[in-house]
């Protein structure tokens, strides 16, 4: 399978920070591949996601290279990369109609007029399984539940048909049942569109059910990466093993 994305020696240091947030990461992602990035607070997993999407603050210093062999132009967030954040309450504009927020991404990235972009937005709201998408397009974020808001954020992330969807703890603020629904939606969308996925999570159980491959991060470094089957059955590091043991499932 051809590589979509390649990271070589990637490092990030935030302005004023004593230590690097991310150091020496070599990682490749194939087109259509589903990669889970797992780690605890301070592991660098969100920094990795933001570095790939070009969302780091300007003052952050970046080392190493991020290349996109799978694209013939530099990757742009919104067009080539869709990004879903943890808190849809803060990623959606509270005073802009929901349909317009999805349409704006299409208008800005697909060279599409507003009328067509708004029509496309309604299609996308339907695709993320929101009820009455035409009416919902005229509603505002405060009228929706957390799970519904995250569906709108996902619609905005995929409207320009990106090659890569990055979900950064996109389900961790949701309750268990809604989380499972959003994971099922993400799984269906990446499969249907052949999108690659980077699923950033602290929950190895959730990740293992979604990803082809898992990369485990700790203190800014990648400690292990393997296919999901290999990592779950035969973790090579004590840290990965500890994360697997700490997973609290329902089976004895």
């Amino acid at each position: 399978m051809s590589a979509l994305l390649e990271l070589r020696g990637l490092g990030v240091r935030y302005s004023g920070a004593a230590t690097a947030a991310l150091e020496g990461v070599d990682l490749a992602l194939a087109a259509g591949e589903r990669l889970a990035v797992i780690g605890e607070s301070g592991s660098g997993k969100s920094t990795l996601a933001r570095a790939i999407a070009g969302l780091l603050p300007r003052t952050a210093r970046l080392h190493g290279t991020i290349t996109w062999p799978g694209l013939d132009h530099p990757a742009r967030n919104g067009r080539d990369i869709g990004f879903v954040f943890q808190d849809p309450g803060s990623s959606l504009d509270p005073v802009m109609a929901l349909g317009d927020q999805v349409a704006e991404v299409a208008h800005a990235n697909l060279d599409m007029g507003w009328r067509a972009a708004r029509r496309l937005a309604v299609e996308l709201l339907d695709r993320v399984k929101l009820p009455e998408p035409a009416a919902l397009a005229r509603a505002y974020a405060h009228q929706l539940s957390g799970g519904q808001k995250q569906r709108v954020a996902i619609a905005a992330a995929i409207v320009a048909r990106p090659k890569l969807l990055i979900a950064d703890e996109a389900t961790s603020a949701l309750d268990t049942i809604v989380q499972a629904e959003i994971v099922a939606l993400i799984r269906a969308l990446v499969t249907e569109d052949g999108m690659a996925l980077i699923f950033v999570s602290h929950d190895i159980g959730l990740a293992a059910n979604l990803a082809d491959r898992i990369a485990v991060f700790r203190h800014g470094r990648m400690v292990e990466q393997a296919t999901t089957a290999a990592l779950v059955a035969r973790p090579r590091t004590d840290y990965s093993r500890a994360l697997l043991v700490a997973h609290l499932g329902l089976e004895a």
């Binding site: 268990t176 049942i177 929950d203 089957a229 290999a230 779950v232 059955a233 997973h247 499932g249 329902l250």
Partner: peptide, 28 residues
């Protein structure tokens, strides 16, 4: 209750709780 939830919401909660997938030792 977790092994055999009687209510619809109990069944939904159990179904939604992620379980580590089972892989045979020979998987790679």
């Amino acid at each position: 209750v977790i092994a055999a939830p009687a209510s619809a919401i109990g069944r939904a909660l159990v179904a939604a709780t992620p379980e580590l997938p089972k892989f045979r030792e020979t998987a790679s």
